[in-house]
Nucleic acid binder design. Structure first.
Lengths: 333, 333
DNA sequence: TTGTATGCGTTATCAG
DNA sequence: CTGATAACGCATACAA
């Protein structure tokens, strides 16, 4: 069942069938109807492979993410896929893990599949050492690269990101204004996004005119129990803090658990602020005040930008979206 | 840059290049090396569209799910993608929502993309009315259909599912044995999986020799707050229950919140059991005892079965996987 | 407005 | 073991 069959049944040439198929206006109404009827009758569906070969595109975008089961990325993937589909693009998903070699391998794999663009979802794709990003910059010569919540400078590379610095600055300032002085900063990684968040935290202290206490900055694995135990450990060592602000909601959940276990009342004795406003922030009691990094806006903007790139429009190489602070019960300001 | 360029540079025919490309043994070691060197030198990558056209496959599987941001499905997608990639297949993701028309539309869209198989992830794709499933049964004549945690009988349809009935039966029996008598069953939907779970709950009562109290069976939306408020409402109406067992972890989180709000102690006065053993079950205090529906095993088994189908092996049309009960702090047995 | 002919980059058949 | 050539199904430039 191909275009020849349709042309035969309709008594026209394959060129005409192709025109009807592609909505070419240079077809008489009568012919168009005839062809359409035959196609419906025969249940004809164009062969996407042949179409892809001719047009050198299959309207497919590659989405790379380190771990699609992470709540934040799961949301991102959902919104990206939905937005892409609204423009009639398909999404090939590729979960890479966190290893650079694996990321490069999968990136090249995706390129060899001739996707029309690659979306890097999450801030884990931009490495600290510039030379580790050269494969991305090089590849962008061939196809648009879209970063969701990451930033990389380069021709044909477009970044859409949440203003993590401002978000964290605002949240920490809120805590300071409410009288908290010893805000513990709990973070997971030094990714692009991670660095911005930490700077926001630091600058909040500076702009508030208070000295920064480096011992209040603490790294831990992205895991509820690990975060809880880390805080219990610090508490046991005598470290004092009256607030915890985290780079991810899961750590904030750990902080709430720590307070329960240590018999510390929230928010009276301890304030907690999480990041991402994920489902997790609504699971605990009290529910967690969290920074909404606007995943949905991030994703739809990314896709809109991509469509702009495809249609040759002049689009910004970097778009920043403001975050929101969703106040719940772990803060009292 | 195509196969002709390579053949020219290597001084062989395109047929030979193609043989090298496909690992055909009928090529002399010498020729093979020569061609391989030229390919590496030129940085040649075969064109997947042309390949797809010739072979009528692009090694791509469609994954449909109602909502990829749901924690359970997000996990499933992660494992499915990983397993598929280990067999060098790509995954096209398609989030359909819950509307039947939309599901059908996207299903046909995916078919028109000539994927090699379609995976229906989650129990929301099998409708109550048989005629609403006929489009699936019909389509299975053309390509394998894999159901993850759903069951549909039909030629070329393969289901891998968790024994929800046994899981719920086991959990409810545990509660009964521990002395609970009024177990509230909170569920979200009448999907295939949902019906099995409820039957497990009912049969637990029957097999334990106790009468079933229909007023203890209650439906509510899949939302933490809605679940909490539903329970508060029932409690306010004077309904008594000493345990809550739910069809999804999010409802169980709501149950824990309800207990907090109503001043009921867990697990002394109220036991809670969730379903799916998702991240949510570890967020609350106390952490929730939950039924592990073995998503990973479900997914890897699904893909292994699929590969069996592709290689013409005789594979079971239905595979059942046993669940686990992960005991945490909301139960005392 | 319609038809003819050719190209897209492979795979596969068949002959040597 | 190798090469020439015909599919595969569509898009499109050019001709009519």
């Amino acid at each position: 069942m191909n275009i020849y069959d349709v042309s035969k049944h309709a008594g026209v040439s394959i060129a005409t069938v192709s025109r009807v198929l592609n909505g070419n206006p240079n077809v008489s109404e009568k012919t168009r109807n005839k062809v359409m009827n035959v196609m419906a009758e025969l249940g004809y569906t164009p062969n996407v492979f042949a179409r892809g070969l001719g047009l050198n595109t299959m309207q497919t975008i590659g989405i790379m993410c380190s771990d699609s089961s992470d709540p934040y990325l799961a949301n991102a993937i959902y919104y990206l896929e939905r937005a892409l589909r609204s423009f009639e693009y398909d999404a090939i998903l590729c979960c890479t893990g966190y290893d650079l070699d694996a990321k490069q391998k999968y990136f090249n794999l995706l390129r060899s599949k001739r996707v029309d663009a690659i979306i890097l979802a999450g801030s884990k794709f931009v490495e600290m050492r510039p030379k580790d990003n050269s494969y991305l910059i090089e590849a962008a010569k061939d196809l648009p690269l879209m970063l969701v919540n990451g930033y990389l400078e380069g021709e044909n590379i477009y970044s859409t990101l949440c203003d993590d610095h401002a978000a964290m600055h605002h949240a920490a300032t809120g805590l300071l204004k409410s009288g908290r002085r010893r805000i513990l900063y709990l973070y997971t990684s030094y990714s692009f996004s991670g660095v911005n968040k930490m700077e926001g935290y630091k600058d909040a202290y500076r702009d508030f005119g208070l000295p920064l206490n480096e011992s209040l900055i603490c790294q831990c694995a992205k895991d509820i129990s690990v975060a809880r135990d880390t805080l219990l450990g610090l508490h046991g060592q005598g470290l004092e803090f009256d607030a915890v602000i985290t780079s991810d909601d899961s750590l904030a959940v750990g902080a709430v658990k720590y307070a329960h276990e240590a018999g510390i009342s929230i928010p009276d004795q301890l304030s907690v602020i999480g990041y991402n406003n994920s489902l997790l922030s609504r699971c605990t009691d009290p529910e967690i005040t969290s920074i909404d990094s606007k995943v949905e806006a991030l994703c739809t903007t990314t896709i809109n930008t991509l469509m702009g790139v495809f249609s040759g429009m002049n689009v910004p190489s970097r778009t920043t979206i403001a975050s929101d602070l969703i106040k719940r019960q772990t803060t009292n300001f």
